[in-house]
């Protein structure tokens, strides 16, 4: 599903990822943790096909990202620090636009829109408001709903619980478990370790652009960055 071997990514001339080895199977939920500036966001952007690998091999959903970044993008949802919403459009118009931009048409848009909006707790009153007047948490919910309508094969979530109230956090957890139930894979970068660990036994720790630990938190068995692709320990 996701294979990185000696992956290097540059931000300008700075190697934000300095040779990452990581293997993630389908339907896995993997927590990416590490200090600020460790390279977590860069790793997610690389897996989304936003960055071109500067070295090593990166294969996502069967596509080599050195050559086929665009083929990956339509099957990936990246929730970053920005919401990617248009302030002068309503929440409903934003969700519909991003659904159509991802190639959905007609009844697919309507049915998926309804389920995503319900899951994220977006009622009709809120959906009818322009994004400019929504709170930060409501924008975040709208942004997640806009990703959920696409039903991607790979979710890349950067601090998905940030700025959300309890109901919103629960909704994000539901989206993650539903996505995995439907066959998707989820990478979550978060500082809320306890919350994400309740969803995922596997924790990958990054520091200075390198994987320094790859463990299953129940037994805290470390796989180490030198063993990419090894089966998680129970």
């Amino acid at each position: 599903m996701v294979e990185l071997r000696g992956a290097v990514a540059l931000l300008g001339n700075f190697p934000a990822l300095a040779g990452i080895d990581l293997s993630i199977d389908a339907t896995e939920i993997v927590l990416i943790q590490g200090p600020n500036g460790a390279g977590k966001t860069t790793l997610l952007q690389l897996c989304a096909g936003l960055l071109r690998p500067a070295g090593g091999d990166v294969v996502v959903l069967g596509h080599d990202l050195a050559r086929e970044r665009r083929a990956v993008r339509r099957q990936v949802a990246l929730l970053g620090h920005s919401t990617c919403l248009y302030g002068d459009l309503t929440a409903a118009e934003n969700i519909t636009f991003w659904a159509k931009a991802a190639g959905l048409t007609g009844t697919d848009v309507h049915s998926r829109f309804a389920s995503a909006a319900e899951l994220m707790g977006l009622d009709q009153r809120l959906l009818a408001r322009t994004v400019n007047v929504l709170s930060a948490g409501q924008r975040r919910r709208t942004s997640i709903a806009a990703l959920a309508v696409r039903r991607p094969e790979l979710w890349l979530l950067d601090e998905p619980h940030a700025g959300l109230d309890q109901a919103g956090r629960d909704a994000v957890d539901s989206i993650i478990t539903d996505a995995v139930g439907a066959g998707a894979t989820v990478l979550v970068s978060s500082h809320e370790l306890d919350r994400v660990r309740s969803l995922s036994p596997r924790v990958v720790t990054i520091a200075a652009g390198m994987v320094v630990a790859d463990s299953v938190h129940n037994s805290h068995t470390t796989r180490g960055s030198g063993e990419p692709g090894g089966a998680p320990n129970a």
Binding site: R74, G80, S82, C84, Y86, A101
Partner: peptide, 15 residues
Amino acid sequence: LERADDAQTGLRLSG
């Protein structure tokens, strides 16, 4: 319009 809130990244990821 595309720079505000990084909608351009959304467009790139839309495929």
